[in-house]
Design a protein around this nucleic acid. Structure first.
Lengths: 417, 417
DNA sequence: AGACTTTTGCTGGTTGACTGACGAAAGTTA
DNA sequence: TAACTTTCGTCAGTCAACCAGCAAAAGTCT
C-alpha cells in the first residue's frame, strides 16, 4: 500500500502502450518487486489493468498491464458566448457523452453552472456511473480567467461573472478539483493533446467572431501575469487607421479580420452574409468575392502572427475557429504573410496548419486540463478508492476490448505524455 | 553522508538570509536531526557556513547558518559584436573580477574562446583560487544559440561560429558544465536576478545598434523552437514602408528605432552623431532634436511592445541597452505608445522601467544561468569536494564572521581519498 | 561561581522502501 | 501427462532516512 512513486509508473503507462513488469523494471531501473508493489496500488485504484498477455517465449507468458482510461471520469465544459458544450470524458480525454446547447453566457454564472451540473448528472445516469467516479472538472469560459483561483476577471461579454468563484460553486455539486481557464487556452490544450502531443512550442489561433490565441511555450500553457496572454484580437494592424472596433479602439485585428468585418464587406458587394457560417458557405460554394475576402483576412492575421513568430518562435501554428472551416483559403493568406516576412531561422521549421480537431477541441482541452491536474504524481494519493457497488462496473464497452487493445492504441497515443 | 534532499535546504538558504537549524526544521517540517544530517553534507561542500550566532534567549544561542557564495566560482562571459566581458563571480552572481576588452567576434570561436580562457586563468591567479573551484561556465553570444547543445545556429554577425561546439571547446580548459545562450537572454536573466527576483512574467528589451529581447514567461526563460524567441528587431512597424534594413527586408523596427537610424536622422539635422553613445551625449546635453528623436524611437518601439504585451501579458518590461541610458526619454516614448493602445487588463499591472543594472547585466545573467544549472538539486552530487591547498582561501569580506571549523580534518580526508 | 536555559551532536529505534530468493503458477514442448 | 521454461507473488533481510531522547556544550542570570 505504499504508492510513493506510483505516479512515475502511471506517467509511463499513460501513453497507452501495454507493458510487462519486466519492461517497467527496465525503464525505471527498479527491481520487479518494487514495480509489483507500485502496480498493486495502481491496480487497486483501477487506473491500470491487465490486458492480453504477451506471446510466450517458451514459458509462462508475461502479463501486460496498461493504463485504464475508463477507470474514472472527468467532466469537461466549453462555454461560449451563445452556446455551451458539456461532456463526460474518460481519463484519456476521449468523449463518452456530449451535449451542446444554445445557452447565453449572459444568463449569469448560477444559471449556466446549474445547467452544466444538471446535464452532467444526466450523463452520469445514461452511462450508469456514480458521481463519485468523477475525479475533476475542467471548464473553459469565453473571457479572461485567473486560472489559479478559477475566477473570471473583468470579462467583457460575461455580465455577472466578474470575480465569481466558479470552482466553489461547482464543488457544491461535484466535490472535486475544478480547473477553469480561457476557452481559447483549452482549445490549444485540446489541439495539442489530440494531434501534436510532442509539440512544446505552438500557438493555437481561433478565428471566428473574435480572434484569440492560446500560447504553449516551453511545453507549458502561458497565461501571463493577469491571465490574458494570447489575447491578440485587439492588436493594431496597419492600413486600417479609421476602422472602429467594438472594444472602443480602432484598427484592431478583430475589427478587420473577424467574421463580422468580413461579412460586412461581403454585404457591400451585394452578398448575403452575417455570420462566420455564412462566409464559410459562400467560400465553399466557390464565390470568388468571398474567397478573396477570406484570403485577405488571412493576410492581415498573418501580419500579426508574423510578430508572434518573431517574438516567441513557435514550431507550429494551428488555426481553428469557425472561419478556419473555409478550406485552405484562410491558411493560405496567413502563410503568405508569415513566410513573406519572418526571418528564415524562425520560419524554416514553422508549420502552419488548420485545426482538424473540430468543434470538440474545447471540451477535449478542458478534459485534458482536468486530467493533467488530477493525475499528477503529487496528487495521486487524493484519489479515493472507489468501491463500485455492483462489483466491477467497468465491464462496459471499452473493457470488452481490454483483452484486445490494439484498436484503442492509436487513440491512446494521442494523449499527451 | 546522505545528502538526498540537501538540495531543498540549499534552495531555501540561497536567498542569503542566515537561519538556525530550528528555523529550517520549521520551514521544511523535518526534525532537527534530519536537518543536521543534510546540513552536514552542505557544510562539507562548504556551500553553507556558520555565521555569527543569533542572540541568546536565555540559554545557548542557536548557531545561524548561511549560504556561502564564496565556496566556489563561476565563470561568466558576455561576448558582444565588438567587445567581450569576462568575469569571475561567486555563487550569488556577485562579480569578483571583471575584464572588458575590445574583441571582434569575427575573429572566430577559437580565438575568442582562447582569449576567454586565458583571461579567466589570469583572474584565477589574481584571486589565488584554483581552477577546480570553478563549477560551471556561462556564456552569452550575440546571435541565435541552440541552448541545449550550446551551438550557435546561423548567426548573422558571427562568421565561423555556425554550429561550433562551444561547450566542448571550453571544456578542454575548464571541464565543467558550459551553458551558452543568446546575449539578450542572459541580460534578461541578469536583470531579473539583480532587481526582480520574484517576477515570473517579464520582457527585457535591449535597444542599441540592434534591438532584441529576452522573454521570461511562466517563470522560465522562453527560447522557442529554434532558440530565436525574443528576436523582435525585425518586426515590421507601420509608417516605414520604404526604409531598408541591413537584414534585407524593409520597415524593420531596428531600421527605424535602432541607434544607427536615429544617428542618421540627427545627421540630417546637422548634428554629429554616429553611435548610440553620441546620441546619449546629445540627449544629456539637452539637445531638443535628439530628445525628440529618441522619444519618437520609443514610440515606435512601444508600438511593437504593444503587441508583445497583448500576446504574452507580462507584468514588467525592462528597457536596457546603450540607448536606454539617455534618461527617461526613450522610456517615456515607449510608455506613451504602450499605455495608449493596450487593453486595460494587460496594462493595469504592467510596469515599464529602465534597466538599472548597467553594462554588467550580461555577465551577471551568464553567471546566473550557470549557477542555476550547477546548483540544481539533482546535480548537487556532481560537485566535487574541493581541497583548498592553502587552507581557508575564502577568508574575504563575507567570511570574516565564519567560526573556524575543523577544516584540517576534511582536508586530510580528501587527501587520503 | 553555580544554577538555569537552550542548543547541539549522538545514539538507538522505528519506519518504509527496495532487493534477492524461493516456491507456486502458467504456459510450452516432448 | 510429464518435464521444462519463464513469470508472479511473497517474505525475510537490508539499507537509508528520520525521529525521540539524552548528555554534553555553550550560553545567560543571580
Amino acid at each position: 500500500m505504499h504508492n510513493g512513486g506510483a505516479g512515475e509508473l502511471l506517467r509511463i503507462l499513460r501513453d497507452g502502450r501495454p507493458r510487462t513488469r519486466a519492461d517497467l523494471a527496465g525503464i525505471t531501473g527498479l527491481g520487479r518487486a518494487a514495480i509489483s508493489s507500485r502496480l498493486e496500488a495502481l491496480l487497486e485504484l483501477d487506473l491500470v489493468v491487465p490486458v492480453s498477455d504477451a506471446a510466450s517465449t517458451g514459458g509462462r507468458p508475461s502479463a501486460r498491464l496498461a493504463f485504464n482510461p475508463g477507470a474514472r471520469l472527468v467532466a469537461a465544459a466549453d462555454v461560449g458566448a451563445t452556446h455551451a458544450t458539456v461532456a463526460l470524458t474518460d481519463l484519456s480525454g476521449r468523449i463518452l457523452l456530449q451535449t451542446t446547447e444554445r445557452l447565453e453566457i449572459s444568463c449569469g454564472p448560477e444559471f449556466v453552472l446549474d445547467w452544466l451540473a444538471m446535464t452532467l448528472q444526466g450523463h452520469l445516469k445514461t452511462e450508469k456511473r456514480p458521481a463519485t467516479d468523477i475525479i475533476a472538472v475542467g471548464i473553459g469560459l469565453p473571457g479572461p480567467v485567473e486560472h489559479s483561483t478559477g475566477k473570471p476577471t473583468s470579462p467583457p461579454i460575461m455580465p455577472g461573472w466578474d470575480g465569481f468563484n466558479v470552482p466553489a460553486y461547482v464543488q457544491r455539486t461535484f466535490d472535486v478539483p475544478v480547473l477553469v481557464d480561457n476557452d481559447v487556452n483549452i482549445m490549444a490544450l485540446g489541439e495539442r493533446a489530440t494531434r501534436w502531443p510532442n509539440e512544446d512550442n505552438m500557438i493555437f489561433l481561433k478565428v471566428a467572431t473574435g480572434i484569440g490565441s492560446g500560447v504553449i511555450s516551453g511545453g507549458i500553457l502561458q497565461r501571463g501575469a493577469a491571465g490574458v496572454a494570447g489575447d491578440v484580437g485587439h492588436i493594431a494592424v496597419s492600413n486600417a487607421a479609421g476602422i472602429q472596433c467594438r472594444c472602443g479602439k480602432s484598427a484592431c485585428l478583430e475589427a478587420i479580420a473577424g467574421a463580422p468585418a468580413i461579412a460586412a464587406q461581403l454585404r457591400e458587394n451585394g452578398l448575403e452574409a452575417t455570420t462566420a457560417n455564412d462566409i464559410v458557405s459562400l467560400v465553399r460554394s466557390g464565390d470568388l468575392n468571398a474567397i478573396q475576402a477570406v484570403r485577405q483576412a488571412g493576410r492581415v492575421i498573418g501580419e500579426m502572427l508574423n510578430m508572434c513568430v518573431s517574438f516567441i518562435n513557435p514550431a507550429l501554428i494551428v488555426v481553428g475557429g469557425s472561419l478556419a472551416q473555409s478550406g485552405e483559403h484562410l491558411i493560405a493568406g496567413i502563410r503568405e504573410a508569415v513566410y513573406a516576412r519572418s526571418t528564415p531561422l524562425a520560419t524554416q521549421h514553422l508549420n502552419i496548419t488548420q485545426s482538424k480537431t473540430g468543434p470538440e477541441a474545447g471540451v477535449v482541452g478542458a478534459s485534458i486540463l482536468a486530467i493533467e491536474y488530477a493525475l499528477a504524481p503529487e496528487r495521486l494519493n487524493d484519489l479515493p478508492t472507489t468501491l463500485h457497488p455492483g462489483g466491477h462496473l467497468n465491464t462496459d464497452l471499452q473493457n470488452v476490448e481490454r483483452v484486445a487493445p490494439a484498436s484503442q492504441s492509436s487513440l491512446r497515443d494521442s494523449v499527451a505524455s
